[in-house]
Amino acid sequence: MKRLWLPLLLLALTVAPAWADVAADHYNRGNKLFADGQYAEALAAYQAALDSGADDAAVYLNFGNAAFRLNEVGLAIWAYEMGLRLEPRNEDLRFNLRYAGAFMRDEMPPADEVFILRVGRALAGHFTADEALAGAAAGWLLCGLAVLLWGPWRRFRWRVIALGVLGALLLAFFAPIAAANVHRQAVLERAVVVADEVLVRTGPAETAKEAFTVHAGMRLELIETRDDYARVRIPTGFEGWLPTETYRALRRDAE
């Protein structure tokens, strides 16, 4: 086993950049096609970049733009949401998401009316789950470090107190954001409707009673899947079943 680690490491170092190069090639080809106005071909190239393992906000932005030019509003919204998952402060993604949202047929419910919830949601929206978790972890470690240094560094008591306060502030600020974002990204199964119009039914079958209709761009919370159907909840709280091919999940698992 000891003899294997070096070849494996070399293989990983060689193969990983190769995948990255393939993905970048697809991406750059997509850009050229987009500039030539060949949006369908550009979309396919961006999709190939994603299939090659890319998880880059630039790919999602360009994918969304190509989809939007093809009147695929739902697909565009999905791509912008995926990009914002990686770069939540990216102004281009934020604007394009709002822009594409203006072409949705369904009206999204208004934001939280409680001030504190609105502020909390806005704050959480500025950080990725990893950033918030790293911030909270740093605060957690600093608090512990301050406790550790309290005895030996008695001469620098004020510095140790400052370290502890800094840790506590980091923890208090980032821990709720981390909890919200990790829950949102890792626990909640979210998705976006990409089909133009979908009939949501009361059961996982084509024969089930019709409940309501959703259109491209509608955000969904996936509750369960059964065969080719998923039970979903829309932001207004309504629940129903729709075919799995009509939405794209807002999740990217590591390759």
Binding site: A16, D56, A66, F68, Y99, A186
Partner: peptide, 25 residues
């Protein structure tokens, strides 16, 4: 919003960020 247009695509890149396992996982 409809009176405006999408912000343009990002330019070419040498390398792209690849999918990775988030910290929480």
């Amino acid at each position: 919003l409809r009176g405006r247009d999408l912000r343009y695509i990002r330019g070419d890149k040498q390398t792209l960020r690849m999918a990775y396992q988030p910290l929480s996982a």
